Simulated scan of single mutants.
Amino acid sequence: MKNYSPWEKKVRTRSSTPWRRAMTMGKAYAPVGVLVGGYVSMTAQGGGWGWFFVFAGVAAFVAGFAMWLAFVSVKPTVGRGIVAGAFAGIVSHWLCWLFSMIFWRFTFLTMHMPLSSLGEAPMTMFEVPLGAGVFSLWSLFIFGAVTIPAGAFIGGVVGFIQKKSVDAARGASTDV
């Protein structure tokens, strides 16, 4: 077990662990996915799009959480938050398509009913990662202008708030 200095003990309180900081970003970014996915759910042609807003919200949460944990949570800054948020805006597209395609395949295998308007079987599990990549390129082209700046903005705000709280716990200055 590591011995922490007095200021590290203050920073490592229950509310400021790296996992909890990453959870904050995931929760802050998830509504962007729900809004964009909701738009897709309401305007898409064909069947099977009704739950897309759920996949988009979960994907935004997971992407925000993972990018924050990877880039920011140990040493939060505004710049790192912006980068992590922008990456979350990119990665969330692939995750959304991945989750939705897995759901569509699972539904087909368990209920023997396709969710597409054409009635064909969805992709196999081997095709899903590549298919999600291709679909995410299109969704990035269409909705990336919303998700990437929104992620960067939310990441910057969360990074600013977390930097201030970490600096206050350390007793340091709160300069950005």
Rank of each mutant, 00 (worst) to 15 (best):
L115P: 04
V166S: 04
Q162R: 02
E127H: 15
G156L: 08
P114K: 05
L130C: 08
G131Q: 12
L109I: 08
T110N: 14
G131A: 00
A168R: 03
I161M: 14
M123E: 01
S139R: 00
V134C: 01
V157R: 02
G159N: 04
G119H: 05
V158N: 03
I148N: 03
L115W: 10
G156Y: 10
S139P: 00
E120I: 09
A121N: 09
L115E: 07
S173H: 15
P129L: 04
M123L: 11
K164I: 09
W138G: 00
I154N: 01
D175F: 04
R170W: 10
G156D: 03
G159P: 13
L115T: 05
A150E: 02
F160C: 01
I161L: 06
F108P: 05
A172N: 06
T124S: 13
W138L: 08
G119K: 14
F135N: 14
L130D: 14
A168I: 01
S165Q: 09
A132F: 00
M113H: 15
F143A: 13
V146A: 11
G131F: 03
M111C: 08
I148G: 09
S116L: 05
S116Y: 11
G155L: 12
L137P: 05
G159R: 11
S136A: 15
F126E: 12
E127K: 15
E127G: 11
G159Y: 11
A169C: 03
M111F: 13
S165K: 10
G133I: 12
T174A: 11
G155Y: 07
A152Q: 03
E120W: 11
L109F: 04
A168T: 06
G151D: 03
M125V: 04
A150G: 07
L137Q: 15
G159Q: 07
F153K: 08
D175C: 07
S117F: 02
A172D: 14
V134R: 10
F160Q: 02
V166M: 15
S136F: 03
T110D: 13
D175W: 08
G171S: 00
G156C: 13
T147Y: 01
L118E: 14
D167V: 00
F108I: 05
A169T: 06
I148S: 10
S139D: 07
F143V: 09
F160A: 09
S165H: 03
I148V: 15
M113L: 15
L118C: 01
I142F: 13
S136R: 01
V158R: 02
A172W: 13
V157Y: 10
A150N: 00
I148F: 07
F160R: 09
A132H: 07
S117R: 05
P122S: 09
A150K: 08
A132G: 04
S117Y: 10
F108T: 02
A169P: 02
F108R: 00
Q162F: 02
Q162W: 01
L118Y: 14
G171R: 00
A169S: 02
S139M: 01
P149C: 13
A121L: 10
L140F: 10
S117E: 04
D175I: 12
S173A: 14
